[in-house]
Write a protein that binds this DNA or RNA. Structure first.
Lengths: 338, 338
DNA sequence: TCAGAAAATGCAAACGTTTACACGAAAGCC
DNA sequence: GGCTTTCGTGTAAACGTTTGCATTTTCTGA
């Protein structure tokens, strides 16, 4: 299966009996050539199975038509869904997607950013805002446009396309408190290097403080985003005496794990303990009881990120941050305290 | 945020007072230049913040260090998980990943294949085997190595890294029959252009035939892979009189949708109706009752695909197909007929 | 010290595109 | 029918890199 040498613009031109310029124009600016020539060229292109050589094109136009994304992992419905929307929007604009994953490790993320930039991306989508200054410095020096997603902050310099994790988590916490809960626990994702996770913790703490409960004393267990993590964390929290009547989770997967564990311990949800999530993925709908959670518009976020990046590339805008709305998706897992 | 014009090899050469050839060699083959020149060059490179222009490099060396993947959608835990593993393995080898999605449309897939190839991929991962001859012809003509995943067939010419959908689905059907079910229905994915879906149907039919039941008469409803699709299809099947005692689904999402619908109709699972899935994703574990399903090693498949592609690129092997094992993951949703 | 070999460096030609400019033909104008 | 536009096409020069070959420098050993 040795690589055959691909047909070039020259081959097409020779075969069609025109110049390379005409072929190039027939493909890129069809309006500039007569219909008959264009047809001839396009037919020849098809016949030869010609595809433009990316290197040559990139070399002269200094446009790569490529956007990059570095995400913690695709192995998570949330990012996968956002990435899918990102890719679709890009694809509609004729731009292809380079993907790398960091595994929630910011120094690994830096490495991946360098690789992608070296590979010639016209822009980058990154997750969250927390990363070494080194990463930002590199991007600035190279003048690579980037958008930060899954987070939002008011900031003139940085381009956020996301939502306010703090506020969203706070809204859920307020709802929990309003239902009468006073003994509340939290299961968070690993907050190191993850501002989404820590913002959600901060939001819950602030809501507790505002209600006259002590945010500082909120019992928190951090775990990796997995069903098993949720189960373990939930077991730990439910051992406390007096037992919490509500457990706020930083993520739906953790929350569903928590529900499973609570039921395994013979507790009713929400009868004995209420549990809430964050993200609103399919799992939330399927879980029993249905998970009350914070709905995040993942697909819209991916689309908006792509559009923003394309607009910056085309010089249309400098950096319009986009703040997306979240809302509480109430199902059955949140009730009154026993 | 306008793109700063990046320093070139020329800039470095001029600044360091050497030729471009020397700079290139100092970077790519350090052994060929004296230590002192090398140091000088490297210092200058650092000083100027030079990074090689990918286009120029790709143009002359005709190596892109890039692999592509065209998958139906990332918005599906199955493909996302496999893709993640694929990417990780690639990344360890210093290769980056280009991603495009086809939305289960083979002609759109062809378009994406062309784009990715034009963008310079050294190899391609594709899903399943069913696509227009045109797509294969294009890949052959261009001599691009590719592996087909999520499917397996004995074939000298084509490189499969996957599993036998027919056999796997047949095994589940046999198990269902063995439990005593005689009135069986099936919910399949859309089989058009999707050999995984149609192979699974064929596997179930064959198992029925082998058991002396008529595979031809198996009631089948095709639906898109979604909870809603599963619900709709299940509603249709359960309207039949006499009612099926078991519903075999082509996918876990469909199966969980079916469970939801069955319960909504007031039926017990598996008391009144048994339901089985395919894939073994998180959802299967969380559903209530736990879903009996076919376990597919998605991550191992992604890794194997990457390794195979890298080996072919390096000329180590021509095409070693890899057949992966599936097994039945039995939980509670499959029982005896009422 | 010097010839010859070996090592280091430079020169310049690709690689496949796009695009400014030039050129000729057809079309529009009076 | 001569004039200017307009339109379609071709010519050739970039773009930034690698690399075969030529050239220069350094090293080796008698």
């Amino acid at each position: 299966m040795n690589r055959k040498s691909a047909p070039t613009l020259h081959d097409v031109a020779r075969q069609a009996g025109v110049s390379t310029a005409t072929v190039s124009r027939a493909l890129n600016a069809p309006g500039l050539v007569t219909a008959s020539t264009r047809d001839l060229v396009l037919r020849t292109v098809d016949e030869l199975g010609y595809t433009p050589h990316f290197g040559g094109r990139a070399l002269v136009s200094n446009r790569f038509n490529t956007m990059g994304a570095v995400i913690p992992t695709m192995d998570n419905a949330i990012f996968a869904r956002g990435l899918q929307a990102f890719q679709e929007t890009l694809s509609d604009a004729g731009v292809t997607l380079l993907v790398a994953s960091s595994g929630y490790d910011t120094s690994r993320e830096f490495e991946q950013i360098r690789t992608l930039v070296g590979r010639g991306t016209d822009g980058l989508m990154l997750i969250g805002a927390e990363r070494p200054a080194e990463s930002y410095a590199f991007l600035e020096r190279r003048g690579i446009p980037y958008v930060l997603t899954w987070s939002y902050r008011h900031d003139e310099k940085t381009c956020f396309v996301g939502f306010d994790n703090r506020r969203a988590a706070g809204a859920m916490a307020r709802e929990v408190i309003e239902r009468g809960h006073r003994r509340i626990g939290m299961i968070a994702g690993i907050t190191t290097g993850n501002d989404r996770a820590s913002d959600r913790v901060a939001g819950v703490r602030a809501a507790l403080d505002a209600a006259g409960l002590s945010g500082r004393d909120l019992p928190i267990v951090e775990e990796t985003y997995s069903l098993g993590g949720g189960r373990r964390a939930c077991a730990t929290l439910l051992e406390r005496r007096p037992r919490p009547t509500a457990v706020i989770c930083g993520n739906d997967v953790l929350a569903v794990g928590a529900i499973i564990q609570a039921k395994a311990l013979g507790l009713r949800v929400p009868g004995d303990v209420s549990i809430t999530g964050f993200d609103d993925i399919e799992l939330a709908e399927v879980a029993e009881p249905g998970l009350s959670t914070v709905h995040v518009p993942h697909r819209r976020m991916g689309q908006a990120a792509a559009r923003t990046l394309l607009a910056i590339r085309d010089g249309i805008t400098d950096c319009t941050g986009v703040e997306l709305e979240t809302y509480l998706a109430m199902r059955e897992s949140l009730g009154e305290p026993p």
